[in-house]
Amino acid sequence: MWAFDAIGTRWRIDAPEPIDTAAVRAVIDDFDRIWSRFRDDSVVARLRTERTVDLGSDAPAILGLYERLDDLTDGAVSPAVGASLEQLGYDAQYTLTARGEAIPAFRWRTARRDGSVVTVDQPVVVDIGAVGKGFLAQRVAELVGDPVTVDASGDIVHRGAHPLRVALEHPRDPELAVGIVELAPGMAICASAINRRTWGDGWHHVLDARTGEPTRDVLATWVVAPDAALADGLATALFFVEPERVLDEFPEVGCAVVDATMRIRAARMTGEIFR
């Protein structure tokens, strides 16, 4: 087992073979250097001032997934949501004080992407929070090699020999679980919940990019998928679209959603829901 902190979260890797910790660190550092919204010197930060930026070899996968999420949620999930987050105070300094009214994100559909190269017609603050951690967890798992379990604070890539029993944390009480998922080898589970990282007037980090306002109706979501980036992104999408639609369009995933009335909807997962 190796536990460490990176990209603002706690990581834990379980593997029977020695882990090349330097290689894992290098992958995470590279990722941070390109994608971090909290670094002035990140590559993605150039889109604040430059019209055309090459975002590197991961960009097609990450931005391609975002384009699917944009379609699925009619623009609610967007990699351009960074300016909306900063407007509400979720910035590099963690000021957590709103600068004014919520502002909609730049409409990502109007950006042009050619492979890894993105061209925009105005300054854009990119934030890939909806898929970044899952993407990186998947990348780390692939680097370490099977068998391995990578846990990036609840976003889990499981490539062990046996199913992993994962509790779904109750969004209003972290001492409670709302169910258990049996995560099969080769699958990932990602969660998105608005009970953490809250500030101000009930604000949190899941914003509707179309308005720049925090969502209110859904409290927590989980997605099980063969790929953690997809699971992570769909967990955010479930704040904006019905689970039936997600399940229709992504036959390889299962999901669970808890809304503000503490109603839970879950499908296509193995385990137990407490009800």
Binding site: R165, E169, L176, A177, V178, W222, M262, F274
Partner: peptide, 17 residues
């Protein structure tokens, strides 16, 4: 939802926190 105590469950991981 009917929550149950995490400490009383047989689990390997927690997702959500």
């Amino acid at each position: 939802v009917e929550g149950r105590k995490i400490t009383e469950l047989s689990i390997d991981k927690v997702s959500g926190s």
